[in-house]
Nucleic acid binder design. Structure first.
Lengths: 336, 336
DNA sequence: TCAACGTGAGAAAACGTTTTCTCATCATTT
DNA sequence: AAATGATGAGAAAACGTTTTCTCACGTTGA
């Protein structure tokens, strides 16, 4: 029809071996009946001519494309990249490749991408975003392929994977307690974010029902401001601050340094996200909660595979545990 | 053979319309001869039953999969994401989807990914990395599909796209001059990086053959240190600093603030990369050189498409211009 | 010696498209 | 009225696999 490629097909192998294509197929797939000698010879010839089966042809036959789509509106990749990395890592062993589609909150663009993926017969779609409590600007319900939501809001009855914010908050508080901190506050993002609220609730539960939670923006500037508030009045100052993300934590650490408050000697700081570019470059480097996004990605990948291959998967929200990454800002590998 | 899906095929449309599949195909593709009435009826029926052609089947026929692969070892995505965004944007209009493969400097993993993509008959591969003067840990020469190198080292005779570092440096110096700066220095990364050297050369050419260039690491810490050196001695201090990246620039700005030097009133600072997370959060926000990575991605996408469709593309290194993003750290929408 | 059986290998169909060819049918021209 | 031409639509082949069927041949057992 159109330009034929020069790639070697199973027919070439058959010709070279002097057998039929069926025999070649059976030989290479270790199926069917045939003389061991024939099988070996065919395998050797196939290797010699560098034959690799055309995945498109197999896909057409099996109705399995061995591709999945990752749909995201997280332009900056802060959350998408670790996730992607985990997905890819889990799936590459199964011969599955991943289409990455960045839709920037544009419903039309999203639809174009979804349609393109469906046309290409993806085995499943993983949806992710930059916020757990917002959904992508496209309706993924009723698609002819399985969908897994990771770190974004999903429709009821779907499979949703997310990090356990409460667990993260508990981890942080535990650590602050371990290093001997008694007066702990939480400086975090807006209370319009479900994550912020969940962490705050878990924080209060772990510290005290009336423990101080300061909601602001997710920025360094807010970290500075929060310190100004805490250290500006006549009240007792805290000796431990759990921050809602690493940017806030950096702001807090910088502001404290400017005031001559020593971190971690005088005050222990714990961040959230383990965004290395912040956590590592802050002086001192941030002890911070890691949401295990890569692991979350791995789970999402495996889950979509289960669904694609018809295995049952429990629907509903599943929260994966966080982990604490210890650097210097909290102090004490030993207790202070 | 295996699980048949419930998706509607051209046969279903044919049955519904009471015609043959060939007629349906011709009707939908506006080819062949047939009564206008028939054509319209078939189109309408196809739309009603929600028919979408199976891209796999078309791919098999046309030897065109309408997919390309993006291979990267830039784990952090600093450069890959904008590039990816540009590629995707340019190609989605052509119905092309992008496989993202993150290989972490692991040759074996790289080979697995490349093989998986070749098996899936990608129309081309775009290689990218985190450093212009390093190549990916896999040999992409002699592949049966076209390859474009973007922001990474490519084999001789290949198509290589990269940002014009010299242009970026010139842009920065020009701006510093425009705002009236006379004593300009360049604080940048290690001279083992080709980019650093090219920018430094262009910097010297624009300022003076013996203009001061300070090589260090790509970190905030180096920015601090450089300021300590510059302001620590008895020498005249500069009134303009061109930094090799935004992290260094942030370090410089912070260090100057700590010393009571005002930015941009006393000293103008220009960064490089336009990494918004740094450029925007620095106080004052950084004026910085943007490498137009998204545009570079767009070009890479279009180029791989040209190659895939057999159009001639000039081989060799092609440098795309940078642009200056003006914020506050350099001063003067009007001259100071 | 003949039937039954096991073995090795090929033919053909299938997956879902597109395209080339062929062939009726009907209208126009001589 | 017969030959020519235009029109509309379908049959079949092709893309590169896998799998089911079929079949020839040789071996075993009675």
């Amino acid at each position: 029809m159109v330009a034929r490629s020069n790639r070697v097909t199973i027919h070439d192998v058959a010709k070279a071996a002097g057998v039929s294509v069926s025999t070649v197929s059976k030989a290479l797939n270790d199926t069917g009946r045939m003389a061991l000698e024939t099988r070996e010879k065919i395998k050797s010839i196939a290797a010699d001519v560098g034959f690799r089966p055309n995945a498109l042809a197999r896909s057409l036959l099996f109705n399995r494309s061995f591709t999945v789509g990752l749909l995201t509106n997280d332009t900056y990749g802060r959350f998408t990249l670790p996730l992607m990395s985990g997905i890819s890592e889990a799936l590459v062993d199964h011969g599955v490749s991943v289409f990455l589609c960045a839709i920037e909150d544009d419903p039309a663009l999203a639809k174009v991408h979804v349609d393109a993926m469906l046309d290409k017969q993806v085995d499943g779609i993983i949806a992710t975003g930059k916020r757990v409590d917002r959904s992508l600007p496209v309706d993924l319900a009723g698609l002819p392929v399985p969908v897994v939501y990771a770190f974004t809001e999903g429709v009821p009855g779907s499979v949703i994977l997310t990090a356990d914010d409460s667990d993260g908050a508990r981890l942080a508080v535990e650590r602050l307690r371990e290093v001997g901190r008694k007066s702990i506050v939480h400086v975090t993002g807006p209370d319009s974010f479900v994550s912020a609220v969940e962490r705050a609730d878990a924080f209060r539960q772990a510290v005290a029902p009336d423990a101080l939670v300061m909601h602001g923006t997710w920025t360094e500037a807010w970290g500075h401001e929060a310190v100004a508030i805490l250290w500006g009045g006549d009240n007792e100052t805290p000796d431990g601050i759990f921050c809602g993300n690493d940017q806030i934590a950096r702001g807090v650490v910088d502001a404290l340094r400017e005031r001559g408050v020593r971190v971690p000697e005088d005050v222990s700081i714990i961040g959230f996200d383990n965004w290395e570019i912040f956590a590592d470059q802050t002086r001192p480097a941030l002890t911070t909660v890691d949401m295990n996004l890569k692991e979350l990605g791995r789970t999402a990948g495996l889950t979509i595979l289960d669904l694609a291959e018809g295995r049952a998967v429990e629907a509903g929200l599943r929260k994966l545990p966080c982990k604490l990454v210890v650097r210097q800002s909290c102090g004490g590998d030993r207790k202070i």
